[in-house]
Amino acid sequence: MQRVTITLDDDLVEEIDAFIARRGYQNRSEAIRDLARAGLGELATTADPERDCVAAVVYTFDHEKRELARRLAAVHHHHHDLSLATTHVHLDEANCLEVALLQGKAGEISHFAEHLMAERGVRYGRLVMVPVEGKSERSDPHGHSHIAQD
C-alpha cells in the first residue's frame, strides 16, 4: 500500500467528513479508497461499452398507463440475454417498482436501461453498473450464469 498526500479545499473535506460520519468509516483513508473505487468503477463501465458488468435497473411506473406493462415486457423480452432476474412490487393502487438484475456488456446494458426508462409512464429510473473481472459466461449447462475469473 502506498501513502499519497493530496490537498483538498475545506468544503470538500467537510463533505467527506459528513460522508464518513453517515457511513461509519473508521478514518478518511477507508472512505476515500471506497469513493475512488466507486468513481473508477463508474468510469470503467461508461468508458468501455465492451466491459463485462453486472447491473441493476430500478424503476417505478404507473401500471394503469395504457399498454405500458406490455411495452415493458417487450423490452425485457427483446433483451432476454442480459436478464438474470426481475422483481416486481406493487407500491399502491397505480404504482409499481421493478428491479431488473442484468449481466452483460456495459453498452448493451445501458441501451436496455435507456429503453426501459424512456417508456411513457415510467416515472423514475436508475441504472447501477458494476464492472466484473473476467468474462461474462452465459451458457452454463445448469441453466444459470457464472462469472469466469481469469
Rank of each mutant, 00 (worst) to 15 (best):
E108R: 15
Y124V: 14
Y59H: 07
I147E: 05
K135R: 04
A100Y: 05
G107R: 03
V89F: 12
T60G: 06
Y124H: 15
A73D: 04
R51K: 12
G39D: 06
A31F: 10
G121P: 00
K105Q: 06
M129F: 01
R23N: 00
H78T: 09
G107E: 01
E98N: 03
R71Q: 00
E30R: 09
H79D: 00
R51G: 01
N27M: 07
E133R: 07
F19G: 09
G39C: 13
A100I: 05
G134V: 00
A69W: 01
D62Y: 14
L102T: 02
C53F: 12
H78S: 10
E14G: 15
K65Y: 11
V89P: 03
E67H: 04
T5L: 09
H79L: 00
E133S: 14
V57M: 08
H90A: 01
L82P: 08
A18Q: 09
L84W: 05
R23T: 00
Q2T: 13
V89E: 06
T5A: 11
E93K: 14
A21P: 10
Q2G: 14
H115T: 08
D62Q: 02
T7M: 01
R126I: 03
V58R: 11
A118W: 12
D92F: 10
V13P: 09
G104Q: 05
A106H: 02
L84F: 09
V13W: 08
V99H: 04
R3Y: 13
M117H: 15
A113V: 05
R28Y: 09
R123G: 14
L68F: 02
D140Y: 10
A74V: 00
D10G: 14
E133C: 06
A21M: 05
L101W: 11
G125V: 10
V13L: 12
E14Y: 14
R37N: 06
R71L: 01
E42H: 15
H146G: 07
E108M: 13
L72T: 09
E114V: 11
L43D: 12
H90C: 04
I20S: 14
T7N: 04
H80L: 08
L12K: 11
Q2K: 15
N27A: 08
S145N: 06
M129A: 03
D48R: 12
L127A: 12
I109R: 03
E98C: 07
A21I: 08
G39R: 14
D150L: 07
A106C: 06
A55W: 07
N27F: 11
L8Q: 06
K65R: 15
E98K: 00
I147G: 10
H111K: 13
D34M: 09
